[in-house]
Design a protein around this nucleic acid. Structure first.
Lengths: 151, 151
DNA sequence: TTATAGTTTATTAAATCCATAGAATTTATA
DNA sequence: TATAAATTCTATGGATTTAATAAACTATAA
């Protein structure tokens, strides 16, 4: 399961994605709109900034902006920053690898090998979906709802 | 990431899968072989038994046996028992569904919709892989190692 | 009927997650 | 250049979950 932190991160990024080419969004606007505790959101946005996904501008009129196009921010990138590894076991992780304590022989471990396969499949799915896709999907669903109510 | 509990469960099931058609495996044998704390393993095997994956026999000469064929025990079944939901957000879960606290409109939520898609993809992968596959993979890797060392 | 082996319940220890507070720093602009 | 607006950093505390242990209890094969 995703942590709340990651959910908050995704929601904030979606809001920022809808705000492209406008003035920076202030942290309090994001917090209010998405009902995220403001201070906590500050910490999360800090991590996203360190990870290069967003850009922050200090001072009066400052706030946050995406530092890439919404279509170039994939779920993998977000999850890796705020949620950690994609793999289900550490020995199968690309970015957070470490050997399992109890492991007797990594080379012949069927579990490791199988979970590397699973990891690759997950990576494929998660790298396909971007912030732009999430925004587009929301728009689609709203259209559907409108059409349905208009019958 | 999988919990240790789930890793232990998978390892125990693999051992039991190699033991089909033999006398029941005693808990202490499983614990020793896989380096799992015996008491903790007892609790885990209890859950697997309640979930219908294994069968336990009391009394002298008792122990644990698989209650299905290794090829009919998939990773999904195991994960659901010891790790909980497969979905990454609760609102996208089939077996552990509950609405997100902060959700304002589930019907038009792009996150929910996208994570249902991701859940289905994960389910597909996890239901393909069985205990029998894990055992077979281990055998394969051992063969490869043997061949390599024989050069 | 007794030793064997699993089951249940409670408790503790450690780790992780969620959130807040307050001081420090940076920057626009008056 | 002073100052108010805004982000950033550090540290801390509570809540929840995970991991593990202990002890008492129950069922059963020999």
């Amino acid at each position: 399961m995703l942590t709340k932190k990651t959910k908050y991160a995704i929601k904030a990024l979606i809001l920022l994605g809808k705000n492209v080419d406008k003035a920076p969004l202030h942290i309090s606007e994001i917090a209010a709109q998405e009902k995220i505790p403001e201070k906590y959101l500050g910490a999360i946005l800090g991590e996203l900034r360190n990870g290069g996904l967003i850009y922050s501008k200090k001072g009066a009129g400052g706030g946050y902006l995406l530092s890439k196009k919404p279509e170039n921010i994939s779920l993998v990138q977000i999850l890796r920053l705020t949620d950690g590894p994609i793999a289900m076991v550490s020995c199968a992780s690309l970015n957070y690898y470490h050997k399992c304590d109890e492991c007797q022989d990594e080379v012949t471990c069927g579990i490791k090998s199988t979970f590397i396969f699973i990891r690759d499949a997950c990576l494929q799915i998660l790298s396909q979906k971007s912030i732009a896709d999430l925004i587009a999907r929301e728009d689609e669903l709203r259209q559907v709802e409108l059409l349905a109510s208009g019958l």
